[in-house]
């Protein structure tokens, strides 16, 4: 797998490109524009870029006002700091159901050395709970570019797009196009399905290769669209493989693992083993060290796969 361009780099470039074509795009940041990469847009289109200072509540409410007056605001900061404006997002953006896009960076534990204060692992759950909000976790640079295109050209409602700081391998084909509410099967398999997203997609593909050596044929399915979620796609692979692992750079509560388990338990119960943060804060370290430390590395996905595969399907008699 070749290395991906950094996702925030791609975000910055797409904003520049689309900003020239769509005059209604405005961008807001909270003193992190050189990290989120919205700064290049700011240099090229200073009249449509607003650095609101370290004032996230002001940023989100101003974005709501801009959207109410017909603009298409992109709001960026580190994922963890946007969360302090949960209620502004709830009341002023989601309840109004207006065209505000939150594209946040530095999500998850791969922020690395900055440590637990900056490693948000509960944001997908927080944002998914909001009516009218849609939540996307892209896996690589190709998907990130496609998602931003989609948001600009096809949507008029609130979205939360979660980007990481680290570069991850390219997992999608060059001509890949994001489809909301649709999973992507990156590797097919018959024995086990690994539902994953974001940084965990590359790791899951490696895990699938190792599982093959143990005679377990694992499918790897990218669930970048967390909300709306691809219920049919999940049920189809639950039925096809009968055993499931989920892998996410997020708490196993209220994120991908919860959503997949919820769909399967309602429609087609099969054994599900979740890989992710287990109700704990992160810590400082290098990203690859942290994946191992928190049991979210390739070997952990492999052992989760073996556990799920060997689990007798307790619900078989029902189906």
């Amino acid at each position: 797998m070749r290395p991906s361009e950094s996702l925030r780099e791609v975000y910055g470039k797409k904003l520049l490109e689309l900003g020239g074509l769509h005059n209604d795009i405005v961008v807001l940041d909270a003193d992190l524009s050189s990290s989120t990469r919205t700064s290049d847009f700011g240099k090229k289109y200073p009249g449509r870029f607003f650095n609101m200072g370290i004032s996230e509540q002001s940023m989100v409410t101003a974005a709501a006002g801009l959207a109410l007056a017909g603009k298409k605001p992109f709001v960026s900061t580190f994922a963890v700091f946007l969360m302090r404006t949960y209620e502004q997002i709830r009341q002023s953006v989601c309840y109004n159901n207006i065209d505000v896009k939150f594209v946040v960076t530095h999500a998850g534990i791969t922020v690395g050395e900055d440590g637990a204060t900056h490693q948000i692992i509960e944001d997908v759950g927080i944002m998914s709970g909001l009516p009218n909000m849609r939540v996307i976790v892209p896996a690589d640079s190709i998907e990130t570019a496609s998602v931003i295109d989609y948001l600009v050209k096809k949507t008029k409602t609130p979205y939360y797009v979660r980007l990481s700081r680290e570069k991850f391998p390219v997992v999608n084909d060059d001509d890949y196009q994001f489809t909301e509410g649709k999973n992507t099967v990156l590797k097919d398999g018959t024995d086990l399905t690994i539902f994953c997203n974001g940084s965990m997609v590359g790791l899951s593909l490696q895990a699938a290769a190792q599982l093959k050596e143990q005679a377990i044929d694992a499918a790897v399915v990218n669930v970048s669209s967390i909300k709306p979620i691809d219920r049919e796609g999940i049920i189809q692979y639950g039925k096809r493989t009968g055993h499931v692992v989920t892998a996410e750079e997020h708490s196993i509560y209220n994120g991908l693992g919860s959503r997949v388990a919820e769909v399967l338990s309602e429609e087609y119960p099969v054994p599900v083993v979740r890989v992710g943060m287990k109700d704990t804060f992160g810590k400082s370290g290098k990203s690859w060290e942290l994946f191992d430390y928190f049991h979210m590395g390739v070997k952990d996905i492999v052992s989760a796969g073996i556990r799920s595969f060997r689990e007798v399907n307790k619900y078989e008699t029902i189906s």
């Binding site: 405005v26 009249g47 449509r48 607003f50 509540q57 002001s58 989100v60 409410t61 101003a62 974005a63 709501a64 006002g65 801009l66 959207a67 109410l68 007056a69 017909g70 603009k71 605001p73 502004q88 009341q91 002023s92």
Partner: peptide, 15 residues
């Protein structure tokens, strides 16, 4: 929250 919304609307008027 309304003052921030007002700021956003006023910015749009300027743009």
């Amino acid at each position: 929250q309304g003052l921030g919304i007002g700021v956003g609307m006023a910015l749009a008027s300027k743009i």
